[in-house]
Structure formats: structure tokens, C-alpha cells
Design a protein around this nucleic acid. Structure first.
Length: 221
DNA sequence: GACCAGGCACATC
DNA sequence: GATGTGCATGGT
């Protein structure tokens, strides 16, 4: 395992950045709401929307369900795409109450693959959002793949060209020990690295991976 | 003012 | 099946 490039990257990142303590949410429900709100959106904007929801007493399944669509959209306006995301939150809630009686523990008690399938069947929850919920709200060992992950792996020549979500996920899950805490930390570290060094226009000087093989010019999106 | 941010669904070819 | 487009706010 020492020479596994994925674990080499992990060690570099952990040594440089330390534990990230993700996900920034006080409850599993808040993590789920955040996962939907952060779709293609900066987290700073999501925080404002979460603050509005808390102020409205809507950071529980019942509380959120009591809001009208207009009230919900108004609360989450700062997170962008507010009409779309209001519908997506409502879709998630509808599933939670219909399938699990509004009880997240009941949802969590299911097999991981069955739960993942149900989440993916909800309109507005795609693979990244589903896996973020599984890992960070339900503590299931599912590796979350996002744009940063693909970009970083691509630039370090660990992907053969553009790869689809599932194949990248399988690569990560088969390449590192199946461990929820490790998955949690690793993904958070990749996002941290991505935010600081691996934007579409990369800034590689000082990057903790700058001594590893990489190619900043590679077309990767 | 352009670019970017922890995507996804849907239309079109 | 692949590719393009709409959705929207706020920070840099």
C-alpha cells in the first residue's frame, strides 16, 4: 500500500492540510440540505441559505415541510438556482416521508446500495449529491467524486482521459482501504487542494503535490 | 466585466 | 449515447 499513488496523494494532502472535519453541518439533515444547496454553488452562498432556514425553524424534516414553496425559495435564494433547489429539497422531503416516515434513522438503516438507488431516483439528486449524503450524513463508505477530484486525478495522470463518474468512483474505492473516515477525509482534502491550487487555471507553486508527476496543461474537463 | 463555485435534468442531434 | 443549455447568486 505504501506505493499506491492514491495513498501517496492522501498522505501528502493530510501532512500539508491536516484533518478537515467535514461536513460542516450540525445534524445529518443539515448535511443533506447543504448537499443539495451546494450543487454548482460556492459554500459561502450556501451558508447564508442555511442560516435563513434555521431562522425560519426549517432545519428539520417537519420544519422544512411546513414552508410553502415560495417561502422555501425565498430562504434559499442566496444559494442560487433557488427555484430549482426548492423543488429538489421538496422532492427529497417527499421521499423521506413516503419511504421512511420522515425518519432519517430509518433511511440510514437500509443497505447502502439500496439507499443509494433510492436517492438517485429522486429528481434533483445525482451521483455526487447522493454520495455526499451517503458519506457525510449517513456515514456509509462511499467515495464522493466531484469536479475537483476528476481535475486533480486527471492532472496527475491517474485517469485515462475524461472518465465517467462511476468508473472514477470504482477506481477510488478499489484503490484505497474501504473506510468511512478515510473517504470522508480524503474527499475533503481533495476539495481543499482544488480550491487553493487546482482551479481551471491552476496555481501549482506551493502545491503539496507539485513534486508528483502532473501536467497542468492537460485538458481535463 | 469575466470567471468561478463541493450538479442536475432535459432537449436535441 | 454524446453534447449543449438553463438554472442564479455572490465572491474574486
Amino acid at each position: 500500500m505504501r506505493d499506491n499513488p492514491l495513498m501517496v496523494i492522501y498522505r501528502h494532502l493530510f501532512e500539508r492540510f491536516g484533518p478537515q472535519h467535514w461536513w460542516p453541518g450540525e445534524t445529518p439533515f443539515e448535511v443533506i440540505v447543504g448537499a443539495i444547496l451546494t450543487q454548482n454553488t460556492a459554500w459561502t452562498n450556501v451558508e447564508k441559505a442555511i442560516g435563513n432556514l434555521k431562522q425560519a425553524g426549517a432545519m428539520t424534516p417537519l420544519g422544512l415541510r411546513s414552508l410553502s414553496m415560495d417561502e422555501l425559495a425565498e430562504c434559499i435564494r442566496p444559494a442560487g438556482y433557488f427555484n430549482v433547489k426548492a423543488r429538489r429539497l421538496a422532492n427529497f422531503l417527499a421521499w423521506l416521508f413516503e419511504a421512511c416516515g420522515g425518519d432519517l434513522d430509518a433511511a440510514c438503516a437500509q443497505r447502502t446500495d439500496a439507499l443509494r438507488e433510492q436517492l438517485l431516483a429522486i429528481n434533483g439528486i445525482g451521483p455526487e449529491t447522493a454520495d455526499s449524503i451517503l458519506l457525510y450524513a449517513f456515514n456509509k463508505p462511499v467515495f464522493v467524486i466531484d469536479a475537483y477530484t476528476c481535475r486533480i486525478l486527471g492532472r496527475h495522470r491517474l485517469l485515462d482521459g475524461p472518465a465517467d463518474y462511476e468508473s472514477v468512483r470504482e477506481m477510488m474505492e478499489s484503490g484505497i482501504p474501504r473506510d468511512t473516515a478515510l473517504y470522508n477525509e480524503y474527499h475533503a482534502l481533495l476539495v481543499r487542494l482544488g480550491k487553493e491550487f487546482c482551479k481551471p487555471r491552476p496555481r501549482c507553486q506551493g502545491c503539496p503535490l507539485e513534486d508528483l508527476p502532473h501536467d497542468v496543461e492537460m485538458a481535463d474537463e
